[in-house]
Design a protein around this nucleic acid. Structure first.
Lengths: 140, 140
DNA sequence: GCTTGATCTAGAGTCGGCTCTAGCTCGTAG
DNA sequence: CTACGAGCTAGAGCCGACTCTAGATCAAGC
């Protein structure tokens, strides 16, 4: 059991999520959070574990290329509660498809780069008997 | 070599590479091209097959997340010709590693999204006997 | 001869996603 | 007491990568 937190400061959440404190405030302003963060004495933000979980999710979505407006949309749907499951699923499926496409694209690029690397290495190994040749090779 | 092109206009290259004509001019200004493009009558750009190949490569690199400055660096090295193979290889290897990391990250995200999708679907299928659960909901 | 459409240049504008600043309030340590 | 560090808000600034505008040129078609 990981300690049940009594609430984290913005700095602690920044550490834990890898977001900057600036980004955390920014996300909140942008409606990325499902609900505005609770405030402690002096108006300081106090993040719950759930907030932090949600932020982890956001970081994940961002890292896989979901734009902030889409995340906000997602958050909106969650905020509104039940009755939007279909819509939520749509969003997720769309994202999944985009991620899949990205994976394909990346895999292709990786193949190309790897190919280039081995071509260059070979060329270098055998004594570079000419100017750079294979600069812009095969197909798109 | 099949069809040796007599040179393509910027519009044709845009079509073929998926870049806009604006982006093509922008790339040239930015030193992304190995050499400035040849000009035809009236000062119009005339792209060779090599230019187009190179642009395809650039598109590929961009699509896999290489920033323009890095591509410029690459182009610089190619421009300078022989003697920079090691450096070129470094660049490529670095990029390969970043792409590999990206692939891992994306794969992880994909897993998460897929998981979420199936969780939601199930929940929906069995009649949604409660509010949205596995998300990261409301206030603390 | 005139219009249309593609091109040219230089430079301004846009957009996403933060990042930073200024000026303030706290709470604790020395 | 005061100095510090962490936090607060509103708003400005920045960076990357384009994208668009204005005003000009030119070839081809009506």
């Amino acid at each position: 059991m990981p300690e049940t937190n009594p609430g984290l400061s913005i700095g602690q959440v920044a550490e834990r999520t890898g977001l900057s404190v600036h980004a955390l405030r920014f996300y909140e302003r942008e409606g990325i959070l499902v609900a505005p963060v609770r405030r402690g004495p002096g108006g300081r933000r106090v993040y719950s574990d759930r907030d932090v979980e949600w932020l982890h999710l956001c970081v994940n979505l961002r890292a896989s290329g979901m734009p902030l407006p889409a995340i906000r949309q997602y958050a909106d749907l969650v905020r509104r509660g039940a009755g939007n499951e279909e819509h939520l699923l749509d969003l997720l499926r769309q994202h999944r498809d985009r991620v899949t496409a990205q994976l394909e694209q990346l895999t292709e690029s990786l193949g190309m780069v790897t190919h280039k690397i081995s071509a260059y290495s070979e060329q270098l190994a055998e004594g570079a008997t000419g100017p750079i040749t294979c600069v812009a090779p095969q197909r798109s």
